[in-house]
Design a protein around this nucleic acid. Structure first.
Lengths: 217, 217
DNA sequence: TGCCTTTCTGGCACTTAGTGTCATATTATT
DNA sequence: AATAATATGACACTAAGTGCCAGAAAGGCA
């Protein structure tokens, strides 16, 4: 088994255990046993216990930066996201991992250590997004404006992720793919302070900063 | 000595040691000895080693939400910040703590555990800011738009903090109070997607979303 | 296939992080 | 000054995490 496979397998087992009995009630031994490896191997793959789920979080947040990178400049955001997030374009494993992440996000309020790991992953995504935005605008990733914009967009995506996960898992509120994409696209447009996402898709309100939420619908 | 005093004293000693020899080379014993308390007392005040500096980070990020709360609705942002951040309105201890935080932010790139603590503190500030923004707009802090706006403003403040600290500590680039305030105010206006900071201060560009940075000056 | 190098893993001893518990010291209240 | 409440110290203990070495597993090469 390859390095990354083991890491991901451990991450999934750790996530399941964290969800079943909480982080503090899960030991490194438990994770090792569940994955069928020695305790030593766990600490070889992860620096700390909470970091065991980091690969899942990282994937989720890095994935989005990649979608943005692959986004053709001559296409609107919604149809692009529709293609990226379509179930037929994701493996069964990817979908299962996505659900695992959503369930983890739903328990963040009671698990501060898990939130630290999540925020760290979001920060990774933010750094990645600097490069993406800088590339799309043909600017340097070190400029203050670029880093600010990346931080804002990342924060917007994070809030949407957290909100949707909490709504779906805790309140059993199932959202359609279209609703999720609409929320995501609106939040990104709201947050993007630089025109990296041109062309602006058709907007009936004529203001790309108008937010379409449940309140205004 | 009161509870909070001891906590802060420990935080300052921990920060100093972290800066001197790095987080991983500092033990809980070291922090306890430096502060003249027993090891047990350290773990009574803090859940983890990295959390020892959290009070300093929290103060920094909660402070800003408080400044925003106390901001009169009929005054522009810059003069208000000028009053809040004026040296004569801060104790010597506050100023020293601020420098300590700046030095910690400057070493974040090499200390992931410290960054986790910092991001957690920023999240605290974000949650606080929801209430502040909701109050200023007479809305509910649970609305999606409010939480999104708070996240964006918090992210903007965080990026400014990180940028300025890195510039000052690592590159020895000293900024005047006016420059700091200008950057901060501009970033906040850029990030604020809801009109919680009306009245809009005079802007020669006639666009409150225009950013004044070194590039455009 | 057999040999060799590289990489990954297990086991064990060890240090540090962090907790539970109880006795003592400190502070506040009256 | 007596008492209740709270903070601390000391010690034993569990869990987190590291260093080290030997062995297993995978990958190149004749």
């Amino acid at each position: 088994m390859s390095q990354d496979e083991t890491t991901l397998r451990l991450a999934r087992h750790a996530a399941t255990l964290f969800l079943e009995r909480g982080v503090s009630a899960t030991t490194g031994d438990d994770i090792a046993q569940a994955a069928g490896v020695s305790k030593r191997t766990v600490w070889r793959h992860f620096r700390t216990k909470e970091n065991c789920v980091a690969p899942l979080f990282s994937r989720s947040s890095l994935q989005f930066a990649c979608h943005l990178r692959d986004w053709p400049t001559d296409r609107a955001l919604e149809p692009h996201l529709q293609i990226c997030l379509a179930p037929e374009n994701q493996s069964a494993q990817d979908i299962a991992d996505g659900i695992l992440v959503a369930r983890l996000l739903a328990v963040l309020p009671g698990e501060p250590d898990l939130r630290a790991s999540w925020l760290l992953a979001c920060h990774e995504g933010e750094v990645h997004m600097r490069d993406v935005i800088a590339f799309r605008l043909d600017r340097s990733a070190n400029e203050f404006e670029i880093r600010l914009c990346a931080a804002l967009v990342s924060a917007a995506v994070r809030i949407v992720d957290e909100t949707i996960s909490l709504a779906a898992i805790v309140h059993g509120q199932v959202l359609s793919a279209e609703e999720v994409i609409e929320r995501l696209a609106n939040a990104i447009r709201t947050a993007s302070t630089l025109p990296f996402c041109d062309p602006v898709p058709p907007d009936p309100f004529g203001d790309r900063r108008t937010m379409v939420t449940e309140a205004s619908r």
